[in-house]
């Protein structure tokens, strides 16, 4: 399987994600995020949020479901067994809040061939389903190691 740079710019169908309180609490506990706004509705309300808000990196849970379409796209030719996570960026437009139904759509933004390997960047836009209000832009860069590359 070899990487296909002609797939650059391709957009994949959006996925849907229902944000639940228990998912936010479970994720916050897993990343040791103790801020009360992730755990207590009252604490979130005191800050002006209408329900629990997600920790800054929770968006990865949603983004990775959308990115799967790009990573497994036969036309793109990414060998997932050789993938290493290189970079991640979250730009938050408004907090992801419990109770929201979101959609996430991934674009294969850039494929940069480096020797036998490649750096693959996807951009995922997360918006609310009912009025397309922006929530987060997630930029993820994967390093696909080449076959003849020396193992570090």
């Amino acid at each position: 399987m070899s990487i296909n740079t002609a797939r650059e710019g391709h957009s994949y169908p959006p996925i849907e994600y229902q944000v639940g309180r228990e998912e936010i609490r479970e994720f916050a506990t897993a990343v040791k995020a103790e801020h009360r706004a992730h755990h207590s509705e009252e604490a979130a309300a005191q800050l002006g949020h209408h329900d629990l808000i997600a920790p800054p990196t929770f968006a990865v849970v949603i983004a990775q479901r959308a990115e799967a379409a790009a990573v497994t796209d036969p036309e793109a030719g990414i060998d997932f067994s050789r993938v290493v996570h290189a970079e991640e960026r979250f730009t938050h437009h408004a907090p992801i809040t419990a109770g929201e139904t979101l959609t996430a759509a991934t674009t294969l933004d850039r494929i940069r061939v480096m020797g036998a390997g490649a750096m693959v960047t996807t951009i995922t836009e997360i918006t609310t389903k009912h009025d397309a209000a922006p929530r987060a832009t997630v930029t993820s860069t994967l390093l696909v190691r080449g076959d003849d590359e020396e193992e570090g």
Binding site: L47, V84, R89, F90
Partner: peptide, 28 residues
């Protein structure tokens, strides 16, 4: 992503409201 997620807790507490963190990035 666990390391990245755990590290930003310092910033959300300092900010007072996690929603004040408008951008967060790293290289692994």
């Amino acid at each position: 992503m666990l390391t990245m997620g755990a590290a930003v807790g310092l910033v959300t507490h300092w900010a007072g409201d996690p929603a004040k963190v408008t951008d967060y990035q790293t290289r692994f």
